[in-house]
Design a protein around this nucleic acid. Structure first.
Lengths: 202, 202
DNA sequence: GTCAAGCTTGACGGTGGTGTCAAACATGAC
DNA sequence: GTCATGTTTGACACCACCGTCAAGCTTGAC
């Protein structure tokens, strides 16, 4: 094990994630990452080849954590609460920090400098998995019977909505507004527990 | 009228809009705009002060056009058709060009280099106006009676959804998928014309 | 202690970005 | 035709970025 890495890789990747998350892929320079981690630029190039490869390494960790947290939120027993907890988690995640950091996935998806196929594939992978999580949660008997549209469509609408909420967060910077919008969508998707005509009081 | 502008301002602003739209605010350099318009960098600085001010000038034109087109789509007599036409318009707009250009508003909202207060205000202004257009369209008797949630909430959900669709377009590059997602949301928001329990066939 | 492998370090060359400025120029007013 | 005004033009100063590389260093293996 001669010539071994001198820096703490875990710490470095965590710092890199923070910078990518805050500034976005395209606006982050290798020097930014070097400064944030205390590792010289040259070492980063040596260890990770280039910015894109380093980003993909960081994004993998991020995606894993994100999916685990999302799954936990969706595990609520009643479907209303599960969806509310799901949105709550995403909204809390994006409104954390000063200034708020937003959503790494969405920032990367929109970033014209992050147009490589590897990055696109990583984004698709995460969104596909999120959609699958939501779909599974909506496929239980209780949820199924209350959905206004089929579970697969509802899952896709919900995931798409989380992306829209991210954008609205950037523009209005008002977490309460985001939660209200999410709640309105949930109201529209789920009929009341008491079967029959839906209320207009939502 | 001595010392008058030598270049065609309309043409220049149109070219600038195309470049901003395609590359995004942050990734567009003044040289990009100069090359695209055939006007030297110095002249652009002289005429518009700096990149941000030029962008705001461009964005104003863009917003005006966008609102006019959106209003026209929403003018369909039946609310289902109106909402479908509204999404159709936004989807067609973002999937135009090779590569597809996406959405200028969303690109700007997410761009960490476009974080000035003037830009943020311009984005809010456009989104507020879009929401108002949709809200008005949903406040007619016919629409009101068929909405699963109140018109104001529905309008906000719909506008937020257009932003989400923009993000999904970037990741999946599949216009049909976007239209299907929009249709699913419309199904969830509107009860069938025949009053009573909603169908699960959507 | 010696050694080789691989990491670290600082510098280099090239590119590209911003905003400014003085000189040259074009044009309508007179 | 002269002139004042605002535009155009190319150069300038400055800063940031990328990716590379040779020299120095650290470390475990032997």
């Amino acid at each position: 094990m001669v010539g071994q890495r001198q820096f703490d890789e875990r710490r470095t990747l965590d710092r890199a994630r923070e910078v990518f998350w805050l500034k976005g892929y395209g606006a982050t320079s290798m020097q930014d990452l070097a400064s944030a981690s205390g590792v010289l630029r040259g070492s980063l190039y040596n260890a990770y080849r280039d910015k894109e490869t380093l980003f993909l390494r960081v994004f993998d960790d991020y995606a894993e954590q994100f999916l685990a947290d999302a799954a936990q939120a969706l595990a609520q027993p009643v479907v209303d609460q599960a969806l509310r907890a799901f949105f709550d988690f995403t909204i809390t995640s994006m409104t954390t920090g000063v200034p708020t950091r937003g959503c790494l996935t969405t920032k990367t998806a929109i970033d014209t400098k992050a147009d490589g196929e590897r990055i696109r594939a990583a984004l698709r992978d995460l969104l596909d998995k999120m959609e699958r999580l939501v779909h599974e949660r909506l496929s239980t008997g209780e949820a199924r019977s209350r959905l206004a549209i089929p579970p697969a469509e509802a899952a896709r609408v919900l995931i798409t909505m989380t992306r829209g909420i991210v954008v609205m967060e950037r523009v209005y910077q008002d977490p309460e507004r985001l939660r209200a919008t999410a709640a309105a969508l949930i109201d529209a998707l789920l009929t009341p527990v008491d079967p029959g005509r839906r209320s207009q009081t939502g």
